[in-house]
Design a protein around this nucleic acid. Structure first.
Lengths: 206, 206
DNA sequence: GGGTGTGAAGATTTTCACAGCA
DNA sequence: TGCTGTGAAAATCTTCACACCC
């Protein structure tokens, strides 16, 4: 199987939308309505799905439950994953308790910070540790995902330690580009760039 | 000028990187190093820049200060923008005080929540208001950007009110697709989809 | 020599059109 | 009839190659 990032990214959104539909009790959904729900075209959605060799053929569209299960299987979204958060400032702390993650199959099982005071003051049900213990805890709990919410300066150091602890994927909220080996999957989320993108389209477009 | 979203998005990142370089006191940067810094290729970067009719022609690459200024001018990133945050749960509250925004030219000038208790308890220097006052405040302060951090259910209502208040762009952290008129610029940031994207590449790729 | 600027070639992604199934 | 599945066409995006400039 050899999907483009674009297809993967879209399917992940489709998967999330199917989850919503399932909870709403919707049984069938057409490619057109799926497309509307995730912001794509019906052609793309159909092609994406057909690239995964999933077929439907009812007159009513795809069976929600079935499609979700199949997408989950193909994209390995059908298993729970453990994640940790490094950096427990405002943002990190907020992510620690972000309720959606658990619902969506990602369990935050540890938080790390270098500031012991912060660790003592923080109020959360998740276990928190000093960064010194990172390697041990990650291995011991078999954590696969690292979420980085430290200030710019510290990011690359954290990345290196996450990787040497055996982490498989990294979501980076710090505003620095980080360097990772090719076998580690990673993604940056950069709030400022997002706002800039929006602002830069204010006058230009339309 | 007629840039693709991809180009705009890349230039926004380049702009941010130039800002870093400028603060570090770097004078010149080549397209190759720019590309490295933002995760692109030198060809793409050169083409993006040339689409904006910015030219360099020194032997050392682009002059950091000059390029940043020109990009800023072309993409309207050279002016401060006012933003507000709707929904002051953990995430919204964290974003209220996200220090980077101000440094990067986005000033959060108001927070809104429907829960009066939350408004009273919150500790921040930013002014917070009940959502009932949204229209007035937004107009009065000429806020251009709305950042949505409410739970799924409320998102579309908030969107509609933001729009009727005259907001120009929306950054949506709630996990629902929202519907906006074509003249409103908006962007979703979906943490779960990001994690899923990463997880789905664990086994497949490499 | 060491870089940019840019048309043209190449690769990828999206759309279309229509056959095929229930 | 209504919607999927999919090759082929169209559109978009990236890379290349090389002229050009300091």
């Amino acid at each position: 199987m050899d999907l483009s990032d674009k297809t993967i990214e879209r399917i992940c959104r489709v998967f999330g939308y199917l989850d919503v539909l399932e909870k709403r009790g919707v049984d069938f959904i057409s490619s057109r309505d799926l497309a509307l729900g995730v912001g794509a075209t019906e052609y793309t959605i159909r092609k994406d799905i057909s690239l995964l060799n999933i077929t439907s053929y009812t007159r009513k569209g795809y069976k929600v439950e079935h499609l979700k299960k199949e997408l989950g299987k193909r994209l390995h979204l059908d298993q729970k994953r453990k994640a940790c958060i490094v950096g427990l400032g405002r943002l990190g702390a907020a992510l620690l308790d972000y309720e959606r993650f658990k619902e969506d199959g990602f369990e935050i099982v540890a938080g790390f910070d270098s500031n012991i005071n912060k660790l003592e003051r923080i109020r959360t049900d998740i276990e928190v540790f000093p960064v010194t213990n990172m390697e041990d805890i990650i291995k011991q709990k078999s954590i696969e995902l690292g979420i980085i919410a430290v200030p710019e300066v510290g990011a690359q150091v954290v990345v290196d330690r996450l990787i040497s602890s055996g982490i498989k994927g990294i979501l980076n909220f710090s505003n620095t580009k980080i360097i990772v080996p090719k076998n580690i999957i990673y993604l940056n989320i950069d709030f400022t760039s997002a706002l800039r993108f929006i602002a830069s389209k204010f006058i230009t477009q339309n």
